[in-house]
């Protein structure tokens, strides 16, 4: 009777979340070397940010992890699973959820239906049972709807619950993307520029949602973001890429003063004149 959350509630500290280990991956498109020997690790309780100029290969890493690209060399491990040989839907089933830089929602479907679609990989009833919609299939639908409603509540989407997402504002659609990733009950979250194109207020809201998810379920988060203010505020560790190589790694304060990073972002000349003064 009292309002209770089943899914989005604090989980105990002892819950085990496997680490994500990317080991020396190489990715090339014809003659272009997109990733040249990238290694990284994402552990429980971390928000790891990847930054770098356009074309540095940030999204390529995400695409390799989620199975859209196959690196030519190197391994990616999630716990004891080797991901490079798995198709995307198997990777999703393991508990790796992502959002996209350019929103990839079903625009003709409502918010709730978009979120329910993400529950597909957690549903067990088959096509025929779902068609008859009786017994287990019915029960399962109700359960899944409850979880989706918790996400609607969590991300404050109540007023757009039944609206087709194609009609919604950009900032809201970004939020629904995050909701869809959450609906998969992910063990880790990969966010590709969740705040691009948002105004200040929307960014603040999104940052709060990301921190809440992280605090609540201890979900490790890998985030690509251009807004340095946000990255510095929420990330526990930052990785800097430039031309497919890893140029720096460390906590936010350290990265902000790293000469390599300044060079990659602002150019050699700037670095020299600043350094010379």
């Amino acid at each position: 009777m009292i309002r209770q959350r089943k899914y989005l509630k604090p989980v105990s500290e002892s819950v085990k979340i496997p680490s994500l280990k990317v080991d020396d991956i190489h990715l090339s498109f014809g003659g272009i070397l997109a990733l040249q020997g990238i290694s990284l690790e994402l552990n429980k309780g971390e928000i790891l940010a990847i930054i770098g100029p356009n074309g540095a290969g940030k999204t390529c890493i995400l695409n390799c992890v989620s199975g859209f690209y196959r690196p030519q060399r190197g391994n990616i491990h999630f716990g004891q699973h080797e991901l490079t040989s798995l198709p995307p839907h198997k990777i999703a089933e393991l508990g790796i959820a992502r959002t996209f830089q350019n929103i990839e929602l079903y625009t003709g479907m409502t918010t709730v239906d978009n979120l329910l679609a993400a529950r597909h990989c957690r549903m067990r009833s088959n096509f025929i049972a779902g068609g008859i919609y009786f017994g287990w299939a019915h029960k399962e639908e109700v359960e899944n709807r409850k979880i989706v409603e918790e996400i609607v509540d969590f991300l404050e989407l109540e007023s757009v619950r039944k609206q087709p997402v194609g009609l919604l504002a950009y900032g809201l659609r970004k939020r629904i993307e995050l909701g869809r990733a959450l609906a998969m009950e992910p063990k880790i979250l990969l966010l590709d520029e969740p705040m691009a194109g948002m105004n200040l207020e929307e960014k603040e809201d999104m940052a709060r949602f990301i921190i809440d998810v992280h605090d609540l379920r201890g979900t490790p988060i890998l985030i690509i973001e251009h807004d340095m203010g946000v990255v510095m505020d929420i990330a526990s560790r930052i990785i800097v890429l430039d031309f497919g190589r890893l140029v720096a790694e460390g906590p936010p304060q350290e990265i902000a003063t790293n000469p390599q990073v300044i060079k990659a972002y602002l150019g050699e000349e700037y670095h020299l004149t600043q350094g010379g003064v």
Binding site: M1, R3, V112, R145, K146, E149, E150, V152, D153, E158, R161
Partner: peptide
């Protein structure tokens, strides 16, 4: 209305 459904509280509750 909460989590998309109307929750009812009787006088007893």
């Amino acid at each position: 209305k909460d989590f998309g459904v109307w929750n009812e509280y009787t006088w007893e509750d």
